[in-house]
Amino acid sequence: MTLIMVVDDDQDLAEMLGIVLTGAGFEVDLVNRGDEVMDLFRAQTPDLVLLDVMLPGINGNEVARLIREESMVPIVMLTAKGDTHDVVLGLEAGADDYMVKPFNPSELVARIKTRLRRVISETAGGLKIGDIAIDQLAHSIMREGKVIPLTRLEFDLLVALAKEPGRVFTREALLNEVWGYRHATDTRLVNVHVQRLRSKVETDPENPELIVTVRGVGYKAGVPGSKEQ
């Protein structure tokens, strides 16, 4: 059974989320306070965390940061504010995705499924991007024999780009492929995660060589040393 931890201070909403998610076949753990999350998280090791931003105790962004310190578990933020500032704060704290209240329950379930899905590639062989080797079976990446820890989303993002080295991905295409959005122009999500991924895999994140920005369009996998912009 897949265990989802739902952190929300509104008891009714938490209960409703429980109903919807159990209906979709998940197991659900309900938490009402931010400062109770970590103990339960360590005890239960959920497969995904649904996290409200406004929480008593510690706020959701801080909880996301604490979880990220010890786990790569997918985190989806639930926020009442769709302002860029609030969204980016959550993403920078380590959330993989966010949903603005009031969200559509089927949309929520679809997003959760995307975050939980394991991409099983047909060709089990290793992908490469620059000097980084991607092991799709083990879900890990290595540079010079050293493992670089990535969240599952960051891994998916890197794989998406590495699978088609020549292709320029629009932000919308990435949203579709990696986040499972059907229609969205929320480029903040892509931008923040590309920044996070760069900070982990690029040797010089200020001058990225592996994940290259194509102005006005999107991103593509770069060839290090070729100096193309």
Binding site: L13, M16, G23, K81, K101, P102, N104, P105, S106
Partner: peptide, 18 residues
């Protein structure tokens, strides 16, 4: 207001979908 209205609306919405 945004937060206070949206949270119950989310519950209502999910309930109605169910």
């Amino acid at each position: 207001v945004s937060h206070e209205l949206r949270t119950p609306l989310t519950t209502i919405r999910m309930a109605s979908e169910v």
